[in-house]
Design a protein around this nucleic acid. Structure first.
Length: 643
DNA sequence: GTTGGGAGAATTTTT
DNA sequence: TTCTCCCAAC
């Protein structure tokens, strides 16, 4: 028997050993949320609950992996049969079994953002002639996504949004309908559909819901404050039979409302789950009191929260967080680099240091300077490896190899052929009768005969590869399939078309290396579809020595570093001007709170006073962030200029 | 219909 | 500085 008492503080112990029934754990930053959740899993298993009767829902793959690893260490390998993963993963898993009940086949495809935007663009072009005075595909995608994630009325959303030019909601509705129809015809779901259709499945097929709600005796949800209405509803349904629901979250850290997250879900949890127990975790093990004082001061600016105060467990180190007022980006860069070098000299490892910022473009200049100084860093924001064109090409090739009808992979491969553009590709697709299965020789022969003369030679190579690696051979030869593709054709293609072909090849090789762990290709392809650049970087960093971490605040949630530097604490930057246009500053303040609470020992806040405007070279004056002004003077040291 | 050049715009956060 | 769109030439 495990001695839980010696491993946990009284509040954590209460949460871990809570009896059956609904339970809300309000866990402030750094109070051992993950710790508590993993011990809860281990406790349940020790108590005799079978792992396959436990469902653990998270928001990121990283959190899922981390908790599973830790719980395995506590409870042993049997834990493998526990269901854990992101909402999207679990929904995906469920839909693979029941997709036929919501109008799809079980071999449905998953659209990434580019695929989805491409379809929307198609609908847009068909409906609107004057594209200059109509919202772009990205804007339309976000409107449609907002409607899906909030289960709201698209017309209302359009009517309540301000555009440069007046927009007829009818046209947007028509485009949304076209988009939905195209998805269905292609047997494809976007990310939102995974959630929406699972909910639909449960609501329309009580027998399916019953199977899962009976199976999951215990449902545990991490980061509950970031659930949107669909996710909250899914959780309610899944836990409806046994009523053993443990929701863990921190309303202070709700930072995804632009994606439909609604922190009222956590505020209303006690109402929806009557008689639920509430436990607050407020003892912070992470940070020195100087950092926590700032964090508490920052969040005090927000109304409408569960009252929680971070209480330090650690002793003071007598060093207050530092606010540095600087002239411009280059001075900021210099200061950051000097700070990093001093930290390294005093014995910190590069991986102890993180540089955080509101938006990816804030870090571009610093990245160049770090490279010049030959400091190792890991950048996780911006476009990830899996989002790059070349990675998608390779994935499309793998999808074709693995058989089944996949119009998106088909179109992408066609576009790589010389003299084949969108029109020809579409024509060939039609002549193929709207299908191509790489596993069927008849399909491959037919396709080869339809290729234009100029593309024949290139296609013959690909056709040969697909033939060689079709379904059954492919299963455990993913990396070989990819390296053959690279060696016999794609590398040459890259060299012909790009001057950074080397880098692209490296990315592809890294992708091939993902197979080394013996994962079947089909599974790999599903994972890739739901993977983010954070996951990609992490997979890569496993072998490398991780350097200084450069990350957006969003990606930094749940992580901690001894040294944290926050860039661009200015109005318009942090809080972001765009976000302010959408609503009040409460969410930006929560985001700033998340940034501050990542720091264990040292916190540096940078406040440059100007920035360059990228295109015309002009200079823009920036006020210090309101969040800096809200911190009482005595809680921080202030430094002006670069010494 | 495709391709490549050139001009122009643009920079939130992510499953 | 990097992607994206538009137009003109093959």
């Amino acid at each position: 028997m495990t001695d839980w008492q010696s491993l946990l503080n009284p509040e954590q112990l209460a949460a871990v050993t809570a009896s059956d029934g609904p339970l809300l754990v309000l866990a402030a930053a750094g109070t051992g949320k993950t710790h508590t959740l993993t011990y809860r899993v281990a406790y349940l298993i020790e108590k005799g609950v079978a792992p396959q009767n436990i469902l653990l829902l998270t928001f990121t793959n990283r959190a899922a992996r981390e908790m599973l690893e830790r719980a395995t260490r506590l409870a042993g390998p049997a834990i493998g049969s526990l269901w854990s993963g992101t909402f999207h993963h679990i929904c995906h898993r469920i839909l693979r079994r029941h997709a036929d009940k919501v109008g799809y086949t079980r071999s449905f495809l998953i659209l990434d953002r580019d695929d989805a935007n491409g379809l929307i663009n198609k609908a847009l072009k068909a409906r609107v002639s004057d594209l200059k005075h109509f919202p772009k595909k990205e804007v339309l995608a976000s409107l449609i996504g907002k409607a899906a994630n909030t289960q709201g009325d698209l017309r209302e959303i359009v009517e309540n949004t301000t555009f440069n030019d007046p927009v007829d909601p009818e046209i947007v509705l028509a485009i949304a309908r076209d988009y939905a129809e195209m998805k269905r015809n292609a047997n494809a779901m976007d990310f939102d559909d995974l959630l929406v259709l699972t909910l639909k499945l449960f609501e329309e097929h009580p027998e399916v819901l019953q199977e899962y709600s009976m199976r999951f005796v215990h449902v545990l949800v991490d980061e509950y404050q970031d659930t949107n209405i669909i996710q909250a509803r899914l959780v309610d349904l899944l836990a409806s039979h046994h009523r053993n629901l443990m929701a863990v979250g921190d309303d202070f850290q709700c930072i995804y409302s632009w994606r439909g997250a609604d922190f009222r879900n956590i505020m209303d949890f006690p109402k929806r789950w009557e008689g639920c127990e509430i436990i607050k975790l407020e003892r912070n093990y992470r940070s020195v009191p100087e950092v926590l004082d700032v964090a508490n001061a920052v969040i005090a600016g927000n109304p409408d929260q569960f009252q929680k105060t971070l209480r330090a467990v650690r002793d003071s180190d007598q060093v207050k967080p530092l606010v540095s007022f600087l002239r411009d980006a280059s001075e900021q860069s210099k200061l950051v680099i000097r700070t990093i070098q001093r930290a390294l000299q005093s014995g910190y490892a590069p991986s102890d240091i993180a540089v955080l910022y509101r938006s990816h473009f804030h870090v571009v200049e610093l990245e160049l300077d770090l490279r010049r100084q030959r400091l190792d860093y890991t950048l996780t924001s911006g476009q990830g490896v899996f989002e790059s064109v070349h990675a998608k090409d390779v994935i499309a090739y793998l999808r074709l190899c693995s058989g089944g009808t996949d119009e998106f992979a088909f179109q992408r491969m066609m576009a790589l052929m010389p003299n084949v553009g969108p029109k020809t590709a579409e024509k060939i697709w039609q002549k193929m009768g709207g299908q191509f299965n790489g596993a069927l020789e008849t399909d491959r022969l037919k396709l080869s005969s339809l290729m234009p003369k100029k593309a024949q030679e290139d296609w013959a190579v690909i056709d040969h590869l697909i033939g060689e690696y079709h379904s059954k051979d492919l299963e455990h030869n993913g990396n070989r399939a990819v390296s053959s593709f690279l060696d016999t054709w794609y590398e040459a293609y890259l060299r012909r078309n790009f001057d950074n072909a080397e880098d692209r090849c490296d990315d592809v090789a890294a992708l091939a290396a993902q197979f080394e762990r013996g994962k079947p290709v089909a599974e790999f392809l599903y994972d890739v579809a739901l993977m983010t650049n954070v996951d990609a970087e992490q997979a890569r960093a496993m072998d490398d020595v991780p350097g200084i971490r450069l990350s957006t605040v969003h990606q930094a949630k749940g992580l901690e570093w001894p040294f944290v530097i926050v860039l661009w604490c200015n109005e318009e930057m942090f809080p972001s001007g765009r976000a302010l246009k959408e609503g009040d500053d409460a969410e930006e303040r929560r985001l700033f709170y998340v940034a501050v609470t990542r720091a264990k020992d040292n916190l540096f806040l940078c406040v440059p006073s100007t920035r360059k405007i990228a295109h015309n070279g002009g200079t823009l004056y920036l006020k210090p962030s309101r969040f800096i002004k809200e911190i009482p003077n005595e809680l921080v040291s202030k430094r002006y200029g670069f010494y």
